[in-house]
């Protein structure tokens, strides 16, 4: 029906281009071009007034050899990976639970899950700072049970950053997983029980593969932004828990070296590109598999 679509008049090429132009130009100007600039300016020298000089130099890239950087890159990577894994592990049961609730209750539970996501994320971060503060409630609780001594520092370390990263990105993991779980046919789980699988086994070998597309999306939607974290390590972490994002901001605000910041950003962009390409490849594979399975129709 689509092929014959009711747009004989509309199907003219000119109109398509005319209607596409505004958004295409906007995104070209304010997304594609700036992204290209990041890579370009990474090869430019800095001028003494905080701007960008003319010419070509590898100076910014050479400065990435600074021994502090590999450590920061590594920390960025493991913090993001750990955040993603923990978020997925927490979110899968939540998605399962949400999808099995009856409709009326499910709607309200879903709102409850999303609501923190609508609060400003700086506020959420700050809430954790209050919570983990040297005089905060968590510390008092730990002291009370003797799990901690008075000197222990809960804030300003990578573990605090990890907790807040997980907290911030958990809703992002729950939503795509819930969307996938909602479409999942739960009679398959019953079929697995019927065939002798235990509850955990049925969950693991039927439900989890059944929501693989949601897992894939959740992975991308948590891992990629986590790589670019800035505010969380800045507020919760100290110098011992900096991530690439902090260094980029420092180069911009503290010593105003834009080419150096560009080189760091370019590196981050490449790091982000990798999981995205992996996602697209996996998605393509998934779709081919579905097509093959649905080939009979």
């Amino acid at each position: 029906m689509k092929a014959g679509g009711g747009d004989g008049l509309l199907k003219r090429r000119g109109l398509e281009i005319l209607l596409t132009a505004p958004s295409l130009i906007w995104m070209g100007l304010f997304f594609a071009l700036p992204t290209f600039l990041v890579f370009l300016i990474a090869f430019r020298p800095a001028d003494p007034w905080g701007g960008v000089g003319d010419g070509f130099t590898l100076e910014s890239w050479a400065r990435l050899g600074n021994p502090a950087y590999p450590l920061i890159f590594w920390r960025t990577l493991w913090l993001s990976a750990a955040t993603t894994v923990i978020c997925l592990v927490l979110a899968v049961p939540v998605a399962y639970w949400l999808a099995r609730l009856d409709r009326g209750l499910r709607r309200w539970m879903l709102i409850l899950v999303i609501l923190p996501f609508w609060t400003n994320f700086l506020i959420r971060i700050f809430a954790w700072k209050t919570l983990l503060h040297p005089e905060g409630y968590v510390k008092e609780l730990l002291l009370f049970f003797g799990f901690s001594d008075a000197q222990a520092q809960l804030l300003y370390n990578p573990w605090a950053v990890l907790i807040v990263l997980v907290y911030s990105y958990l809703p992002f993991a729950i939503l795509p997983l819930y969307a996938a779980a909602e479409k999942f046919d739960f009679s398959l789980v019953e079929a697995a029980w019927d065939l002798g699988a235990g509850r955990l086994r049925a969950f693991w070998s039927v439900f989890v593969p059944g929501i693989s597309k949601g897992l894939l999306t959740a992975f991308l939607i948590v891992f990629v932004p986590a790589l670019g974290s800035y505010a969380i390590p800045d507020i919760i972490g100290g110098t011992s828990s900096e991530m690439i994002g902090n260094r980029i901001a420092q180069r911009v605000f503290t010593d105003r070296n834009l080419p150096h910041a560009s080189a760091l950003s370019a590196l981050l962009a490449l790091a982000v590109l990798l999981p995205m390409v992996a996602y697209l490849v996996q998605l393509g594979r998934e779709q081919r598999r579905l097509r093959k399975e649905g080939g009979a129709e």
């Binding site: 304010f30 997304f31 071009l33 700036p34 992204t35 600039l37 990041v38 300016i41 701007g51 960008v52 991308l220 939607i221 990629v224 932004p225 790589l227 670019g228 974290s229 800035y230 994002g245 980029i248 901001a249 911009v252 834009l258 910041a261 560009s262 950003s265 981050l268 962009a269 982000v272 995205m276």
Partner: peptide
């Protein structure tokens, strides 16, 4: 939608500066 905020902010900053 999938680009980290810091990258988007950086690239736009460079555009505006340039």
């Amino acid at each position: 939608l999938v680009i980290p905020d810091i990258l988007m902010g950086m690239s736009l900053l460079l555009l505006f500066v340039q």
